[in-house]
Simulated assay, not measured.
Amino acid sequence: MSVEKDFVISVLIYSTEDAKSRSFLKLQFKGVKSILFTCDKSELEINLNAGNISNGYVKKNNSGAMIFRLYLVDGYIEVTYETVIITENE
């Protein structure tokens, strides 16, 4: 029996540098191989209004797997996956 392994991240982001408000973005990772997550909960709470996301990127590792890494104010989320579905303003 095969079990689908999904992981979802929902964020509010400024879609452009000139945007006046944040937009909802949902990232649904499919075929998840691994998830790494580390953070300082107190720092996330302190920076809630200013925003906790510093930056992020997607790359392919040496074995061909996709890696998404999202850097936070004090921590990061890393997902190794097969495909991702991105939904805006849902």
Rank of each mutant, 00 (worst) to 15 (best):
N61F: 08
G56Q: 07
A19R: 05
L48D: 11
V84W: 09
G75V: 00
E90S: 15
S23G: 10
K60L: 15
S42I: 05
V73F: 06
N89D: 09
Q28S: 12
E78L: 05
Q28Y: 00
V84S: 05
I9W: 07
A50C: 04
Y71T: 06
I53H: 02
A65T: 03
L25V: 13
K20R: 13
T38W: 04
L36E: 15
Q28P: 00
D18M: 04
F7V: 05
E4P: 09
L48Y: 04
E88S: 13
E43P: 00
K41L: 13
S34W: 02
F24C: 14
G75R: 08
K33F: 13
F68L: 11
T83P: 11
K20Y: 02
K33G: 04
V79N: 02
L44A: 05
E78I: 02
V58Q: 06
D74T: 04
F29G: 00
V84Y: 05
G75S: 05
G56S: 07
I77N: 03
I67F: 02
R69L: 11
T80R: 09
G51W: 08
V32F: 02
K26W: 01
E45W: 10
T80H: 08
A50N: 12
V58H: 04
L36W: 03
N89H: 11
I9A: 13
V73I: 05
L12H: 11
E78H: 03
I86P: 08
D40S: 12
Q28G: 02
V32R: 04
Y71R: 11
K20E: 15
A65S: 14
Q28V: 10
N55S: 13
F68P: 09
D40Q: 07
L44G: 00
E78F: 03
I67M: 05
S15D: 14
N89G: 02
K59A: 15
A65I: 02
Y71L: 12
Y57V: 09
I13L: 14
D74W: 03
C39L: 06
N61V: 02
V11G: 00
K26R: 12
I67V: 15
L70P: 01
K30L: 09
L27N: 10
N61A: 07
N47R: 07
S34L: 01
A50F: 07
V84F: 10
E45A: 15
I67N: 07
L36G: 10
Y81L: 01
I53Q: 00
E43T: 14
T16Y: 06
S42F: 14
A19Y: 08
G56F: 01
